[in-house]
């Protein structure tokens, strides 16, 4: 295996596109190094992207934020602007692992590892975030929901990698939230995760919403029926019950040691409801 740490995006593209064997991007390494030491994958080349200055940056763009692929969870959590605009995305990222894992793990690595239970992805999908994909051909902007295609699988072509994720600007009285269920309070894999992003008008009626679920299907789900239950309504008990029913109806989980189908289906509704309540409270605090 070769280890390379290029200092420019072009050099990274050249390395990745030129590799005939298995090439992998190394961001925080909190998934990749474990997969390598467990012999789950044996790359011929790993390309460490942390030496590329552009990928270490969070920059403001059109009222939103572009988050470079090498920004760690700890760095993201210290960015006041992103925390204010997209608190749900930040709380999804901050749930990843321990303080130590936060010091390395990246949002983009969480996305590209393509685990159905990845904690930042439901919040990113609810946020309608867009990944910028770079490769030997022209770069392309792809909705984050189209990056993972199944457990451990992505839509990235050979030689392609994600340069950054863009979180868009939002109207006043908008916010988001992410919640997960685990049997303990820290350091576990989501049994169910739910992300809600919404906008309220001056009468607290929801005018726009996106609802997503993690760990209840082969990939993170965007649940349009659940968003419909919110839009046009105040976030009251009736609306929340309709939201919960739509979320539970969309869940298609598996039975495993972490939770049964029945439990995960029910908890999908419960978490969607609670996340919507938090997002709405946050939105009301914004002008």
């Amino acid at each position: 295996m070769r280890y390379e740490a290029p200092e420019t995006i072009d050099a990274a593209v050249t390395l990745l596109a030129g590799e005939k064997g298995v090439a992998r991007v190394l961001a925080g390494g909190t998934d990749l190094i474990i997969q390598m030491s467990g012999d789950m994958i044996e790359p011929d080349l790993i390309v460490d992207i942390k030496r590329i200055p552009l990928l270490k940056q969070i920059s403001e763009e059109d009222g939103g934020f572009r988050i470079g692929a090498a920004v760690s969870g700890a760095e993201l959590g210290e960015h006041a602007g992103v925390c204010a605009l997209w608190p749900g995305v930040v709380e999804g990222v901050e749930l990843i692992g321990s303080t130590q894992v936060q010091g390395r793990a990246t949002l983009v690595g969480n996305l590209c590892n393509a685990s159905p239970a990845a904690d930042s992805v439901p919040a990113l999908v609810a946020a309608n975030a867009v990944a910028r994909v770079i490769g030997p051909k022209a770069s392309r902007d792809v909705p984050v929901s189209e990056i993972a295609t199944g457990p451990g699988k992505t839509s990235l072509a050979a030689g392609e990698f994600v340069e950054s994720v863009f979180l868009p600007a939002r109207p006043d009285r908008s916010s988001d939230a992410y919640l997960r269920f685990i049997p303990r309070t820290e350091m576990d894999i989501a049994v169910v995760g739910a992300g809600v992003s919404l906008t309220l008008d001056e009468n607290d009626v929801c005018t726009d919403a996106r609802v997503s679920l993690g760990a209840v299907a082969a990939r993170v789900l965007l649940v349009e029926e659940a968003a419909k239950a919110l839009i046009g309504n105040k976030i009251d008990d009736k609306t929340l019950d309709n939201l919960a029913a739509a979320a539970s109806a969309a869940a298609t989980p598996i039975n495993d040691k972490r939770g049964t189908v029945e439990f995960r289906t029910k908890v999908s509704g419960v978490l969607a409801k609670r996340a919507a309540t938090i997002a709405a409270d946050r939105a009301k605090g914004k002008k």
């Binding site: 280890y3 740490a5 925080g28 190094i33 474990i34 460490d48 942390k50 130590q100 010091g103």
Partner: peptide, 25 residues
Amino acid sequence: SGDCGACSITIDGRLVCSCLALGAE
């Protein structure tokens, strides 16, 4: 595997697990 923290160090002031970083990094 990043679970126990017994290998904790700091890299450029950031707390990390040294079992989850490569020497080359």
